[in-house]
């Protein structure tokens, strides 16, 4: 790329560099700002006097004696029992990922290897199901769940999230399975494997990248869900996102809004770590559906 014809004229180079910098600020600054501010008191983070107070923290200094305070985190995690919501979120997300991947690999494999016309209809039905707003489905669950007395507990929510996740999981894994040559499982079957053995011993070992990527997106769906968890869980069983929303109802009191800020930052940090470790898989997952066409 060092040929002179490839080199950009200076104004264009400046313009595009400027654009990247502006975008980076727009994308990242709100999170960094909120993380920094979560260690201040409300008087600084929502400063009437001067926005710069949120950086230096004079009110925090006056109230607590140091420029940083853990008051928001203590209030949220201990007094408001945010740790319980975190534990519930951990249970829900891990179960959802494991169950959806198990069902999804089996189903996606079948869809990728069967050439009959009904696979098309199944995939199209899955596409329509994926487009359903989740809250329309939730309005169908509530009454039957009340009747069956299974409303409010974690297992119900996990199964519902797995089911809502299935259309997406099937599409993604189906396209990953299509990229694995049919000869692989057929030669395994010639060697005497049953279809399931061929699937488990020959196909799955080369499918790991696809499974990991799909798992990441299942995790994100379960972790980020608000609609299902807020409608299907009781106060004690609630997960992180509805818990944060419930903090907002009680923010009239001085300082309570900082509980919500601390909880929000606590919910963002795991996602930071996730992107840090799995950036490559996330990017490949986002493009998997697209590049195939």
């Amino acid at each position: 790329m060092s040929k002179p014809s490839h080199r950009k004229p200076l104004p264009l180079a400046l313009l595009s560099t400027g654009f990247v910098i502006v975008w980076l600020i727009v994308a990242a600054f709100p999170f960094l700002w909120t993380m920094w501010g979560s260690f201040k008191v409300e008087g600084d983070f929502f400063s009437r006097a001067n926005w710069a107070d949120a950086i230096t923290g004079p009110v925090t200094m006056r109230q607590t004696g140091s420029p940083f305070t853990m008051a928001g985190y203590e209030g949220a995690w201990i007094a408001q029992e945010f740790w319980r919501a975190v534990a519930n979120t951990a249970i829900v997300t891990v179960s959802v990922v494991v169950i959806s991947l198990t069902l999804g690999t089996l189903g996606g494999y079948a869809l990728a290897r069967s050439g009959f016309r009904y696979t098309f209809w199944l995939l199209m039905a899955a596409l329509v199901f994926r487009a359903m707003p989740h809250v329309t489905l939730v309005s169908g669950y509530l009454l039957p769940f009340f009747e069956l007395n299974i409303w409010g507990v974690l297992p119900t929510t996990i199964i519902v999230l797995v089911a809502i996740n299935q259309p997406f999981t099937l599409w993604m894994l189906h396209s990953f399975f299509l990229s694995i040559p049919k000869d692989l499982d057929e030669s395994a079957m010639v060697d005497g494997c049953t279809r399931f053995q061929a699937f488990r011993l020959a196909v799955i070992p080369v499918m790991w990248p696809g499974v990991v990527t799909t798992g990441l997106f299942s995790f994100l769906l379960a972790y980020n869900d608000f609609t299902v968890t807020s409608m299907l869980l009781t106060q004690e069983n609630t997960t992180m996102v509805p818990k944060i929303n419930s903090f907002l109802g009680s923010t009239q009191e001085e300082g309570k809004v900082m509980y919500a800020v601390a909880a929000v930052v606590s919910a963002i940090v795991p996602l930071f770590a996730l992107i840090l470790f799995f950036q490559r898989q996330i990017v490949s997952g986002l493009t998997a559906g697209a590049v195939k066409g």
Binding site: T102, L103, G104, L106, G107, Y109, A110, L111, L122, A125, A126, F129, M132, L137, Y141, I159, V160, V162, A163, I164, Q166, P167, L170, R195, F199
Partner: peptide, 14 residues
């Protein structure tokens, strides 16, 4: 292969 996934979608979406 597909019945578990299909069952989940039928029961909780359809």
């Amino acid at each position: 292969f597909i019945w578990p996934s299909l069952l989940a979608m039928v029961l909780f979406i359809a």
